[in-house]
Simulated scan of single mutants.
Amino acid sequence: MGCEHARAAGGQTSPSQFEENTLSEVKRVIAVLSGKGGVGKSFVTGAIATELARHGHKVGVLDADITGPSIPKMFGMSGRHVHALGNLMLPEISEHGVKVMSSN
């Protein structure tokens, strides 16, 4: 939620809480999460990402799954899923153009 949405809802915000990354080109974030395992979060994430990419949107998935790299497996990837280039971390790109960063 952006600062303007938090203020409109009566929430308190601090400048450091919502500092903008000037290198970022991210326009929207969709979070898929649950407090329970085995409910299909990775499946839903992969399906949403694939459909958005099929409709011409630029899509990236940041996977921080403590039980294993299910997102890279779903996209048919093997090996490292985060690549370093100097101070930058670069994603692996799936066959359908979905950018994937996965940390286990």
Rank of each mutant, 00 (worst) to 15 (best):
P15S: 11
S16F: 14
S16H: 08
Q17M: 15
Q17C: 02
Q17W: 13
Q17N: 01
F18V: 11
F18D: 01
E19Y: 10
E19C: 06
E19D: 02
E20D: 05
E20F: 12
N21P: 00
N21V: 02
T22D: 02
L23M: 12
L23E: 14
S24P: 00
S24N: 04
E25R: 15
V26C: 05
K27Y: 10
K27T: 06
K27Q: 15
R28E: 02
V29C: 10
V29A: 11
I30Q: 10
I30D: 05
I30G: 06
A31H: 00
V32Y: 05
V32S: 01
V32N: 04
L33E: 00
L33G: 11
S34W: 08
S34K: 05
S34D: 01
G35S: 06
G37F: 09
G37R: 12
G38W: 07
G38I: 06
G40W: 10
K41S: 01
K41M: 08
K41N: 07
S42G: 15
S42C: 00
S42E: 04
F43I: 07
V44P: 02
V44A: 13
V44G: 01
T45E: 07
T45I: 08
G46R: 13
A47D: 14
A47C: 12
I48Y: 10
I48C: 03
A49N: 09
T50G: 00
E51M: 12
E51I: 12
L52D: 05
L52T: 11
L52P: 00
R54V: 01
G56Y: 14
G56S: 09
H57K: 15
H57P: 00
K58I: 04
K58C: 08
K58V: 08
G60R: 08
G60M: 15
G60C: 14
G60H: 13
V61E: 07
V61H: 09
V61K: 09
V61F: 06
L62N: 00
L62T: 05
L62A: 11
L62C: 13
D63M: 08
D63Y: 06
D63K: 03
A64T: 14
A64I: 15
A64L: 12
I66R: 06
I66Q: 14
I66E: 01
G68R: 09
G68F: 13
P69T: 11
S70W: 01
I71C: 03
I71F: 11
K73R: 12
M74F: 13
M74C: 08
F75E: 04
F75Q: 02
F75R: 09
G76K: 04
M77A: 09
M77T: 04
S78T: 15
S78Q: 13
H81M: 04
H81V: 03
V82E: 07
V82P: 01
